[in-house]
Design a protein around this nucleic acid. Sequence first.
DNA 1: TTGTATCTTCAAAGCGCTTTGGATGACGAA
DNA 2: TTCGTCATCCAAAGCGCTTTGAAGATACAA
Lengths: 343, 343
Amino acid sequence: MNLKQLSEILGLSQTTVSRALNGYPEVNEDTRLRVQAAATKHGYRPNSRAKGLATGRSMVIGHVIPSSSQHEMVNPIFGDFVAGAAKKYAEHGYDMMFTNADDTSIERAYRDLFQRGAVDGVVLQGPKVNEPRIGVLSRMGVPFIVHGRATGVDGPYDWIDVNNKSSFQRATKFLIDLGHRRIALINGLEDMDFAQRRRAGYLEALHEAGIAPDPCLMRSAEMTEVYGHHEARAMIQMDNPPTAILISSMISAIGVRRALNEAGLKMGRDVSVIAHDDDLSYLKNGQDVPIYTATRSSVRQAGEIAAEMLIERIKSPDGPVQTRLLEAELVVGGSTGPAPDRF
Amino acid sequence: MNLKQLSEILGLSQTTVSRALNGYPEVNEDTRLRVQAAATKHGYRPNSRAKGLATGRSMVIGHVIPSSSQHEMVNPIFGDFVAGAAKKYAEHGYDMMFTNADDTSIERAYRDLFQRGAVDGVVLQGPKVNEPRIGVLSRMGVPFIVHGRATGVDGPYDWIDVNNKSSFQRATKFLIDLGHRRIALINGLEDMDFAQRRRAGYLEALHEAGIAPDPCLMRSAEMTEVYGHHEARAMIQMDNPPTAILISSMISAIGVRRALNEAGLKMGRDVSVIAHDDDLSYLKNGQDVPIYTATRSSVRQAGEIAAEMLIERIKSPDGPVQTRLLEAELVVGGSTGPAPDRF
DNA sequence: TTGTATCTTCAAAGCGCTTTGGATGACGAA
DNA sequence: TTCGTCATCCAAAGCGCTTTGAAGATACAA
């Protein structure tokens, strides 16, 4: 059923039917009701490609999934972020499109998506330090929003981010106040902007307390469970092991706990642990009592906000730059305690 | 840059340029090269909406993300499945579109997606027992593939699934052979088809061994970490606790381990545990030595296969029904051992 | 009665592409 | 010379929608 058929059934022109359905004022209310009834009855859905061609808008927002050859993995926060965004997209009548691209062709994938007219705007996830994609998108004139920020990229762009630095600074200070001096950082890949910021916060807190950072206590990699386990086990076996560990992800924190358990150490007593908690729906940090002391910030909520900001940008391409800095909450759970006296 | 402009630059007709770019034979090779060079130089990308309108195909495949009001969660396997599918879509020139729909409007969302001409086919994830969407899609004539199957739905349809029954039967038998008699099942929501099948496999193995199933040992809910923890803790405290636990998800298995640790029990010695492992990239079951004894089947690979099967279906809508049953591998790790003598 | 304003509807152009059905010219065969 | 055959290329129609510009109908004022 297309517009032409529907208008023939109704004995009206396509113009009138189209206007009736799209809420234009210059159509009689009786006519409008008749048209709407017929549309519902016959299950008419305007063809979105034709509509897009005619209006110049696609009502689709694009995301690019990087499929790196080195580490073929989907970030677990991906699902929650997308779910949050999708909800808002749906509310505003947008669909969401994904394209897969390998590491070498990500820029081209964004350019493609937009220049083909497939999307009205894009979301840029996981920005790296000096992220080149931001410049590319700016120059192209695509409406876009960055989930995160990119140190070293100047020029205005819309972003939403968690205050990674302050939350890790605060978490580190929390451990220092508990008497910890040897505090480890199990961080994400350090070319990722968020990881840089978290490390900066960590270092700053150490600096304020007059503690010299120990490079042996700072690790950086893709934040899997196995990685958390591996690094924690290695650190426990050091001559001068850390009494506290800061971890950039709940997933890796699970690995850390596994390593501690294997070594017969108790979290919160022998070793204190603070994790960053993205508040993933399938991986809540405990129910009533938090398992981990954690810096918490809902990535699903970030997805919702990002979606709304992007839609706003699409509506007014020349509007003021929008930025949004979310503060993570420090949730105190059972994984932290005073530093054990072992000196 | 559109086709018209490009053809004017080249001094050719739109027809010829279009044909040159799309590999039709009736165009001189020299001309084709000239056209291709100009297209690259000017960064010409055919507008996908226009192309779609003209060809009647959208080169997009649709997925629907359910956002239930009760349990607002994204299945963690979602990300990996999608990553696998996206890779194959990209190889075949397809994009992937997501629509969000709440529980009450999922059927309408699928209908919409297709009738609007937004997609050429859809993937149906997480089928329930008697899944009504399958009938809807069949009647609409959309090419689709089901990830999973639906007991109670007859009529042919394409699907790819893991042999849930046989893998859980085998895992249960493995535990029985180790001397376990009280074996618990921490399962997914039982209106989900996969959960039904897993339970069937579990029950059959018990039956074969002449063990009467105990309803107290069978739990069912959304498979979060917290759920695993909660159920395991409750079971441990029973008068006659299980000596082994079968868990439908790695995520919940983490919660189970947490509960065991809290109770001072050692996995594999005091309580044996087998989990189903979807081989998620961020949550591998250990590195060299598996953490858990597990029934393993890569959901990313399932995504890849599903994508290829769907594309095949789109190519030949009247081709034979395709089904694919993957056998899960039983990986033996450190979480299982002989039943403790406590009788 | 005529002119003007308002309401309602319509025909047709246009969005950017593919594809049908020729047109043109070159070339060799009859 | 004339015709058929290729090899190339093109004009124009059509995909299903929105939107411009206009027209018919009605009502009201002059």
